[in-house]
Design a protein around this nucleic acid. Structure first.
Length: 514
RNA sequence: GCGCUGUUCGUCUAUCGGUUAGGACACCAGAUUUUCAUUCUGGUAAGAGGGGUUCGACUCCCCUACGGCGUACCA
């Protein structure tokens, strides 16, 4: 099956999140696959906010979603912030549009009014369970025993409607029909209509449910391909039924249901808890829940480059034919195809995510690395010359896995250490070493070194003059000056810092450590 | 429970009936770095189980097991 559907001359896809909280990995990936598919086929990628559930509205969530997508490098042709020919793009603002389609379904006897209260439904469920049934459904059998426009007289229905009694509109799901649909990723899926209950299409608060709103909007917005999470596959046949009953089956979009992203260990889908437990972010950006104040950490704030982030999630459930792994957005657009999306859920591997980021950091041009450190230094309120910062960046860049490592790993270039590596101290800090360091400090203060090589040479000479091995003191020297047990080439560090700083730090360390 | 759906190294995956089942992360070993990290080289490691179909199955079909999703006036 080709990606280009003959019934839809133009590829138009949408990402349709609910603003109920922060966007997690799976959501960004769904958006990304939609985006890649649109770009690949020269089509449109739109954004639509599915906020039909007022009770779950979360302040700031919509803006957060937009910010996340922008940070990741995606842009949209139509959306709530920029409008477009199908505006508005928030379902709550499209409220007035849906009723007519629900009415149309009723007029054509594909749907009906139902007046049962939540308590009524609860009652029926309980009774059925008491009778041994495991799964009560509002369906072709039970609807005959409920309060709806199929069981009530026309007069009574009209009266209830006139009295503004609460009602919902339900789909009159047929009893015996095989509903087949084609999914680009899974092939043909077929379901017996009797398995589908009489789904609520229109709620008593005057809002459509997902099913109705989604189908109506996808039709109105001329969506060609519905690319969404796997959790929608079971209700896809219902959507097919809706397209059919609304008279839109011939322009129905094609479906592609994406496999879920699973937690790294065990089974089940990835959740915030897993991230907290295992120590990695599951959201694109930091998010603070407005009601609970609970914080969720994001990839951006954890030091991931957006390009790396995109690369990581692109490969969760999809691979190009040649198995190439480091891919830019342009390459992803070029190579992407829904046919190559895998069927099985993918366990998220935070270690590999780290590796990707490190690769991207490694391949960044020097100028970018330098300005990264520059920004971090300035933000930390540290005074240092641009020249010095550049040199430090060049010396430490290979060590960085995350953006914040640039300053994190080079802090000692700017500040005198306050903590010294205890392991090295325990092994190397003794009377002889103290004596040696005093002599070395003296040698250097009398004749400052003018190159990394000279620093090394004078250090070695000081040791051999005392009939000692330089190797005994090299790591100790590093610890006294930087506080750290590891780092870039010591002599380059020393030369960069300058003789005076080195001598000062040796003396400070000797004093602090006693 | 029922419905849908899935199952190749620990993890992400390649393979579209004939391969010594390939790559990447992680892991282990060696080299480089008198350090840590980086880098390089090498290595360990896989087709859930059972039936078919076929000259030949990871690949096609069936069953079993295990997993995921769904089963709301949530999306």
């Amino acid at each position: 099956m080709s990606d280009n559907s003959p019934i839809h001359p133009r590829v138009r896809v949408r990402f349709a999140p609910s603003p109920t909280g922060p966007l997690h990995l799976g959501g960004v990936r769904t958006a990304l696959y939609n985006y890649l598919f649109a770009k690949k086929h020269g089509g449109d990628f739109l954004l639509r906010i599915e906020d039909t559930d007022q009770t779950r509205y979360v302040a700031g969530a919509e803006q957060y979603i937009l910010d996340s997508l922008k940070w990741a490098g995606m842009s949209w042709a139509e959306g709530p912030d920029i409008g477009g020919s199908n505006a508005p793009y928030r379902q709550s603002e499209r409220k007035h549009l849906y009723k007519q389609y629900a009415d149309q379904l009723i007029a054509n006897e594909f749907a009906y009014y139902a007046f049962d209260t939540t308590e009524d439904l609860e009652d029926m469920r309980n009774k059925a369970e008491a009778g041994g049934a495991t799964n009560w459904k509002y369906d072709y059998i039970t609807r005959d025993y409920m309060k709806n426009s199929l069981t009530l007289s026309e007069d009574e229905v009209n009266e209830r409607l006139q009295n503004e009694e609460a009602y919902v509109i339900r789909l009159k799901t047929p009893r015996n029909e095989e509903i087949k649909l084609h999914d680009i990723i899974r092939g043909y899926v077929s379901v017996q209509s009797k398995e589908i209950d009489d789904k609520v299409l229109y709620k008593s608060d005057g809002m459509p449910t997902y099913h109705l709103a989604n189908v109506v909007d996808d039709h109105l917005m001329e969506i060609s391909h519905v690319i969404r999470g796997d959790e929608w596959l079971p209700s896809a046949p219902l959507h097919v039924l809706l397209y059919r009953y609304l008279g839109w089956e011939d322009t129905m979009p094609e479906f592609a249901h994406l496999p879920l992203i699973l937690k790294p260990d065990g089974n089940g889908k990835l959740s915030k808890r897993d991230g907290d437990r295992l120590g990695f972010p599951v959201f694109a950006l930091d998010w603070i829940d407005p009601t609970s104040g609970e914080k969720s950490s994001g990839y951006r704030e954890n030091g991931y480059l957006p390009e790396a982030f995109i690369n990581i999630i692109a490969l969760l459930g999809w691979h190009p034919a040649d198995n190439k792994e480091l891919l830019s957005m342009e390459e992803l657009v070029e190579l992407f195809s829904l046919e190559r999306v895998s069927k099985a859920g993918a366990k998220f591997d935070p270690e590999k995510a780290k590796w990707f980021n490190q690769q991207y950091l490694h391949h960044l041009p020097d100028a970018d690395i330098i300005s990264m450190l520059n920004v971090q230094v300035k933000e930390a309120g540290i005074q240092a010359s641009n020249e010095y910062i550049s040199q430090v960046a060049m010396l430490t860049r290979d060590k960085a896995h995350f953006t914040q490592d640039m300053l994190g790993n080079s802090r000692y270039f700017f500040d005198t250490p306050t903590n010294y590596d205890q392991n090295i101290l325990a092994k190397r800090y003794n009377e002889a070493a103290i004596a040696f360091c005093k002599v070395l400090a003296d040698v250097w203060s009398k004749k400052p070194f003018e190159s990394a090589e000279e620093a090394k040479a004078t250090f070695e000479k000081t040791a051999t003059d005392r009939d000692e091995k330089p190797g005994n003191y090299m790591q100790l020297l590093r610890v006294l000056i930087t506080g750290e047990a590891g780092g870039p080439d010591l002599w380059h560090i020393l030369y960069l810092m300058g003789t005076k700083t080195c001598v000062d730090r040796i003396q400070i360390a000797l004093k602090v450590l006693g």
